[in-house]
Write a protein that binds this DNA or RNA. Structure first.
Lengths: 195, 195
DNA sequence: ATAAACAGAATGAACGTTCATTCTGTTGGG
DNA sequence: CCCAACAGAATGAACGTTCATTCTGTTTAT
């Protein structure tokens, strides 16, 4: 097994165990076992458990963004761009339930809050596509004039909920249902025309 | 201190510590300390930590429902009923951040998933008001004809997100913003008229 | 006086991390 | 071409800490 394979195995094992059992249901010894390495070996690749957890998060983000942005055309109309991103994101979560569960665990932990604070205050890259989209939408008067965080909540809150429901088996999302859900999210953020 | 006071103190201490630090940042000894009782005393009131956690959850639910249902008129139009419930819920979370944080911790833990499964499959009471509202809305063709879980996600997903953002200080929700957010949620679930 | 309620010390299981040792592959002198 | 010497990767038993829970002696109420 090459060096990269070994790191890869550790990361994969950690992802699986943490996604399924949470941070505290994934002792280092168990991760080592599942990865097929000795307990001490993990520490040759990651300084400690916290570092492993954060690195794994970064890995996931890097894997995710290209997939979501695949086929994304910044010159399409706002609505189409939103539907593209929303659909891609929801599909990614459904097709990669381990990734989704891990991201949830991470976001609901102290790591996640810290990370979130950095992103919102310090404007890290990555979510920029989303920010731009929303800022465009507002300035074109296509979207409601609400603070960005609220637009994010309206757009992605439901998305996370339905992804979780699907993964836990509370609903089965087929293509039609995915489309209709994302369109409903759009209805939430779009400026309602007077009828 | 009467017997009920002592139980009350334990529950309050547990709520505070778990809401702020998570289940694993709230050791029994610390809860005992904060409650002003001995560590062993907790076990006179709760068989073990799990029982304490679940009982605390039930306490919160019982405290919450009356507040949210206060002033709720089942004969009002669907839209008004939805705005009432949504606003009341969001307000409750904002005014009781400890309760909110605890509920989040709970829902994102194995306890919560279990509980959720029971509710959705076994139809426990409590969320019935919400179910009725959505079923009404669908049959009156006021709401989109989507599975209940998805309507729930569209309605409450954003609500949880903004509550969290407010509590973490990422946004400050005043009365106007609360109203506009809930109205946006309504836009998400309501049937869009053709323009 | 008695028994229930209580506090906090004691207990043992579980965990993250360390480190002395083993294993593995590479180098270089003959 | 061979193998002795070596480097550093890998290992897992052992350590110290933390925690839920239990035990024990004391206090309190009746």
């Amino acid at each position: 097994m090459s060096i990269n394979d070994k790191r890869e195995e550790i990361v994969r094992a950690a992802l699986e165990l943490i996604a399924e059992n949470g941070f505290h249901g994934a002792p280092m010894a168990m991760i080592a076992d599942k990865a097929g390495v000795g307990a001490g070996t993990i520490y040759r690749y990651f300084e400690n458990k916290d570092v492993l957890i954060v690195e794994l998060y970064k890995d996931l983000e890097e894997r995710m963004y290209p997939v979501i942005l695949d086929g994304y055309a910044p010159d399409e109309p706002t609505r189409e761009r939103f539907l593209h991103l929303g659909t891609a994101l929801l599909r990614y979560f459904i097709e990669n339930p381990l990734d989704f569960r891990y991201l949830e665990q991470f976001h609901n932990s102290p790591y996640g809050v810290e990370h979130r604070r950095d992103k919102i205050l310090g404007k890290k890259e990555g979510i920029n596509v989303f920010c731009e989209l929303f800022e465009d939408g507002i300035s074109q008067q296509m979207m409601k004039d609400l603070p960005l965080v609220i637009l994010f909540a309206l757009a992605f809150g439901p998305l996370l909920s339905v992804a979780r429901d699907h993964i836990l088996g509370f609903v089965i999302l087929d293509d039609l249902l995915i489309t209709r859900t994302i369109e409903a999210c759009w209805d939430g953020i779009k400026r309602q025309s007077v009828c």
